[in-house]
């Protein structure tokens, strides 16, 4: 399964970089979203993927009965998802604001408008 995901994540990264290189700011946002999803999946894949073994301990037990999926990357990704949302909201509003002030959505033109 990790092999398959390796290819998928590679395509997602490629798509994200391509979108972030566009000059239209809306495409930049799409690229950002792709990038954060790709990064999360990357961590998830590298940690090893296991079916049917959530990192939970049964009631009354001291430790999980069988080997469970690695909880640490999961914890990291969980916060990353929420942070990515916050950053996305921030950048979307920033872009919107820039568009209003500068009056263009072309990143290459934005650099010439020192307002």
């Amino acid at each position: 399964m990790e092999t398959l995901m390796a290819y998928v994540v590679g395509v997602m990264f490629a798509a994200a970089v391509y979108m972030m290189l566009r000059r239209s700011i809306v495409k930049l946002v799409i690229g950002l979203m792709l990038l954060s999803n790709a990064a999360n999946l990357l961590i998830f894949t590298v940690a090893g993927m296991k079916q049917g073994a959530p990192p939970l301990i049964p009631e009354g037990a001291e430790a999980p009965a069988t080997a469970v999926a690695d909880p640490l990357p999961q914890a990291l990704i969980l916060t990353a998802i929420v942070i990515a949302f916050g950053v996305l909201a921030f950048s979307v509003v920033l872009i919107h604001r820039a568009y209003e002030v500068v009056g263009t959505d072309d990143l290459d033109q934005m650099k010439d408008t020192d307002t």
Binding site: Y7, V9, M12, A14, A15, L21, V46, G48
Partner: peptide, 21 residues
């Protein structure tokens, strides 16, 4: 040009994951 850059990035990531697993 951008497509080439993007493909480079994607291939690197795939290889990284394969190596890391």
């Amino acid at each position: 040009r951008d497509i080439v850059v993007a493909i480079f990035a994607g291939v690197l990531m795939t290889l990284l994951i394969l190596a890391a697993t």
